[in-house]
Structure formats: structure tokens, C-alpha cells
Write a protein that binds this DNA or RNA. Structure first.
Lengths: 341, 341
DNA sequence: CTGAAAGCGCTTACAG
DNA sequence: CTGAAAGCGCTTACAG
């Protein structure tokens, strides 16, 4: 059997309460006692039983997820994954509360954050909007010692404990390398479609993309970004305009959402006049586009993984549980038709 | 506060013991009582506190990992990830026991399996060797109700509860699509290097690779597999021979291990005479090869993920915990220089 | 600075 | 078929 606090207390000649104080690094124990207890812990190889600790603390760990509203497939996926994780985590005393906030609305997001009672919650995960009211709301939570992680889209200058998501510059570079390689020996232009160049992730992806195309693929020229506002009809329209205007387009990188509009625009063109396409996020639609040959690669981030990583990260900031770094790294996943999950 | 067994017992007018019997589906409760208790559980929204249950059961959940010995980088990675996970899981009452077995030695593996006492262990994860003694050993564990998962390399016809690893046919297809795309407009041959065609994963990858090259890339011809026994000097030698013999080689797919030998063989050739290379498994060496342009893509499976997935899967077979399927899917990861973790 | 005792929410013999 | 009581390994007021 594994040694328990009783064994440690007995061997060190102290009470349970003192062992508890030492284990949890609480104040009010003479230094010599601390050392004695710690020696015994090492000697016996004591490891705290987390189940018992949680039980005794009788704490339910409440985590709030705040996710943007709207038709964005990825955000809806994130939301359903959060609810699913909430169900799975319930037996472990973790209570997830998932709320949605108007997209791109800093004030609305800040209002939600300001409505949270720091004593009631153990952590917050949010898709950040980089706006001043959000900065202030996060500062308040920070000073109340509420752990916060940003999800998917970071706000590096705001107070948060960690960013859980992909490196978007690297994602853009990856898109460029794929298109560059797939267009070996071909000269022409590449169309770039984004939702809005006001959003950090889109800007960062664009940056990474340009870095690689400019320095490594002189045969290709990236056109200025056209913005489709991440919605279906406008994306469709701007892609059509773009392809009609410029017959030299041999590749297309969709930096943001709006894949449905893109698929519609591409479908109506004759096969031989379709560009090589790299887009983001796996969904039923992009998967079908990949399988039919309309898209050539998808760059994806795993929404379920992000949710679970956020939960583990937040919990580790309250429990003294250590994380396995490798488990928390969010991969830039590359999918071809052949390695679809 | 969440309802507890006490609340359920009170509301249903039964004792704690009866509630416990119903929750855990144990025998010996009148059907009408079961229904009454279940109704209350639903009504109150009772969810069992897993921490308390584990504590009361006082059970440490012992899992045995059996991993092949030898210099194979991936297997060593798997071993260290298992030990790391063991450390992280200890507070949750999971005790990992990691042992190594001579590689490709069915009898040795079977001996280890036969030495396990079914009453002492909660589950087994092993890299399977498809040999008759292993089949028998797994049958014995199966009839003793010990959950077993195969790791990395499956033995589909043996008794195991699940395979935790990638789909190797799909991995081979992915390699083919990458090389096919990267070699657009180029005609020539592709060298295939494996460890041994007696191992299931290598055979399956080869099969997937051929499927795609034959049907979609008439400009490319896959040469017969040469076997490098997954070691450095022989892989180096056969790659050198192969490239010297055939100046038409424009691509190379390393199906197995032995990447160090491959890197040596490639390094000594002039840049313009090097083929496009796709290989398996990320390591310090393959990462460097990718960064320097010697390799063009790496297909990887995440050893840490596999280990943790095996643990969750085994535990779910004992606890009645349900898995999130998406979390247990092992991805066929594609890395270019730009999306390295 | 230290300790005795109660309690967290389950499960487990044991008794009936 | 059902229940009363003890116990799992921690933590928490409270007393000293």
C-alpha cells in the first residue's frame, strides 16, 4: 500500500494537521519541523492522494467558458466540445459554465467578465477580443487571483496566464509551404481571402504566409488580401470577382472562415481553371471539399483538445498539479484527403 | 451544492447501501426499488463523485506497459512518455509499471504476459508481436477479464479491447499524396525503404502508398521495398546502393525507422541529386533534417498522446467512465519545416 | 507553532 | 432484499 498522511505523521512524530500544513506549504510551522516532515515524505515516497484531497476540500471547481456567438462553424464546435467536456468532467468535481458573447464586441465581453464573482469561480477561458474594456476586465480578474486563459485568439498584452491555441504565424507559413510545394514549376498569383484584417489571427497568418512566399517561391506572387467578413455570400462574391479579374491565379489561401462561400465560388468554375486551395478548419464542408479535390489541404486546430487543455491548465493553476507540456501544445494539423480523422 | 448519495437515499426512502447498489448496477435489489431510486437520481440530477468513489474503494489502479527494447527512437520515446504519465497520474491512484521486452520476440513477450497476475493488475498496454504464444497469453488475460490495448502496432485477430495507434494504410497513402504533390510535373522512380516487411505496420504503410501512387501518379513508379532492419548502418548502406544503382530516383519514402542511416546517406550526395523525402516519426534528427531541407515532410504519431489514451481507455473499461471518442483518435500528423511543434 | 476530532461522498463487509 | 456503521485519505475549524 502507498504511504498516507497517517504514516508520515507517525514516522515524523507530528499530527495530521502538521503534515497537511507541510504538504500544502502553509504558514505556521517551525522550520525544523518542516524539514523533518519533508525528510519523511521523501523517505517514504509519499504522494498525496488527489481524490481524497478534493473530497475533503469539498470544492467544486467552477470554470467559465466565454465563446463568441454567430454562425462561425469553428466557434460552434468549440462550444459543443466545451459542453461535452463539462459532462465528462462532472464526476471529477469540475463544473463548466459555457456562455456566449456577441462576436467582436469588446464591451459585451467585458460586461460578462465584470459580472463574474471571483469568489464563485475557479477559472475563466475566453476567446479574447482586443479592446480596452476587455483589458480592464481581465486586470480585475487578475488582481482577484482568478486564473484566465485565452482561447484560439490571443491578446498578448492583456493579463492572462496562458494562451491556448496555435501559433498563427507558423500556420500561415505552413499554408505557404504547402502551396509553394504543390505549385512546383508553376508561375502565377495567389489569392488571399480573409475575414477581416482587424483580427489578430488573420493578420498573423497573412504575415507568416508572405514571409515564406516572398523568400522561397519567386515563381508565386501573393495578391493583396480581400476581406469576406467570414460569411458565406460575401466570401462567395469576392472570390468570384477575384478569380474573374485575374486569370493568372494558380493558388488560393483562405485565411479565415467563410469556407462555404469559397466552395460555392470554386464549384461553378471548370475543373481546369480551379486554383490549388489551402484553407483552415475541418468541418463537414471542408472535408467534402478535400475529398472531392476542390481543396488540396486543410490546416486545422483541434477544438476538443483546446477545450480540454484550457481546463487542465486552469485547474493546474489552482491545484498544484503539474502539467505535461507536450500534452498542452496545440498542434497545427495538416490534413490531406488521406489522413482525415 | 450537488446532490449526494445521502440526498438520493433520503428522497427515495432507502439506505445508502441500496443507493450504492443501484448506482453501480449490482444484484440483489427489488426491481421496484431500483426504479424508485433511478427516478430520484434523474430528478435530482445526481452525478456520482468519482473522487469519493475511488477513495472508498481504496483501489490503486495498476497498469502494465510492455514496450520493445532496443535503439528504436520511437519506442524509447514511448517508454519515457509512459514513465512521465505514470508520475503525473500517481495522485489519481493510477500506478504505472513500465517493462521492456526483447523486440520481435513473441515468446519473450508471451512470457511476460503469462507472468502477470490478473488479480494484481487493472489493465495491460502492449506493442504487440503477432506470434502464437502472444495470442494465447492474450486469450488468458481476456478470460480473466483484464482489459488489454495494443499500442502502435496492432494484432487485429488477437483478443484485445482496442487498438491505440494510427491507421497505417492511411499513413502510407498520406506519404504518397505528399510525394505525388511535391513531385508535380516530374517523372521518375520512388525508393521505398522499410525495416522489415514482416512487420504489420510497414506492410500496411506500403500498401497505402502503392494504392495512391499507382492510381493517381502515373509519372511516378514505386520501386520494390528494400529492407534496412531499422538500424543505422544497414539503412545507410542500402540507401546508398539504391540511389547509386538508379539515377532516376526522384523521391524516397522511409516506411520504418533507421532515419539516421538515411540522413547520412543523403548528406553525402550533392544537393541537386537528392530526392524528395518523406519519413516517419519526429525526433531531434528528423527535425534537423526537415529544417535543413534534407527531408521534406515527416509523418508522426504522438507517443505521449498514445500513452495517455491507452491509460484513459483501460481505465474506462474498469470504471464506468465514458470516453470522448475524439480525444482518443490518434492523428496521422504531418509536419513540414513550418509547423514543427 | 501544534494537535484532536469531525467530516467530505462514496463503498464495504456484516447482520438481519 | 435491505440497512447501520465503519472506513478510505485527506482537510478544516477550533482549541490550546
Amino acid at each position: 500500500m502507498r504511504p498516507t498522511v497517517h504514516d508520515v505523521a507517525h514516522a515524523a512524530g507530528v499530527s495530521l494537521a502538521t503534515v497537511d500544513r507541510v504538504i500544502n506549504g502553509r504558514e505556521g510551522v517551525r522550520a525544523s519541523t518542516v524539514q523533518r516532515v519533508e525528510a519523511v515524505i521523501r523517505q517514504l515516497g509519499f504522494v498525496r492522494n488527489q481524490a481524497a484531497a478534493n473530497l475533503a476540500k469539498g470544492r467544486v471547481y467552477r470554470i467559465v467558458f466565454i465563446i463568441p456567438e454567430g454562425a462561425n462553424t469553428f466557434m460552434r464546435r468549440l462550444e459543443s466540445e466545451a459542453r461535452e467536456a463539462g459532462r465528462q468532467m462532472a464526476p471529477d468535481g469540475i463544473e463548466l459554465c459555457v456562455v456566449t458573447a456577441p462576436a467582436f464586441d469588446g464591451q459585451a465581453l467585458a460586461d460578462i467578465l465584470n459580472g463574474l464573482d471571483p469568489n464563485e469561480i475557479g477559472g475563466v477561458a475566453l476567446v479574447a477580443t482586443e479592446a480596452p474594456p476587455v483589458r480592464q476586465a481581465l486586470a480585475r480578474l487578475h488582481s482577484a487571483n482568478v486564473p484566465v486563459v485565452t482561447l484560439v485568439s490571443d491578446a498578448p498584452s492583456f493579463q492572462r496566464h496562458r494562451y491556448v491555441g496555435i501559433d498563427n504565424v507558423a500556420a500561415g507559413r505552413t499554408a505557404a509551404s504547402l502551396l509553394g510545394r504543390f505549385l512546383r514549376g508553376v508561375s502565377g498569383k495567389i489569392a488571399l481571402v480573409a475575414g477581416s484584417m482587424l483580427v489578430r489571427d488573420h493578420v498573423e497568418r497573412r504575415m507568416g504566409f508572405d514571409q515564406v512566399i516572398r523568400t522561397e517561391y519567386p515563381n508565386l506572387e501573393a495578391l493583396p488580401v480581400v476581406e469576406g467578413r467570414d460569411d458565406r455570400p460575401s466570401t462567395r462574391r469576392i472570390v468570384e470577382e477575384c478569380l474573374d479579374r485575374d486569370p493568372d491565379i494558380v493558388g488560393l489561401y483562405n485565411i479565415g472562415a467563410g469556407n462555404l462561400g469559397l466552395i460555392e465560388a470554386l464549384s461553378e468554375r471548370p475543373t481546369e481553371r480551379r486554383p490549388m486551395v489551402v484553407a483552415h478548419e475541418l468541418s463537414v464542408h471542408t472535408r467534402a471539399a478535400l475529398e472531392s479535390g476542390l481543396f488540396h489541404a486543410i490546416i486545422n486546430q483541434d477544438a476538443g483538445h483546446e477545450v480540454r487543455s484550457a481546463i487542465r491548465t486552469l485547474r493546474s493553476l489552482t491545484d498544484q498539479r503539474t502539467l505535461i507540456e507536450g500534452q498542452e501544445h496545440i498542434r497545427i494539423e495538416v490534413y490531406l484527403r488521406d489522413n482525415l480523422p
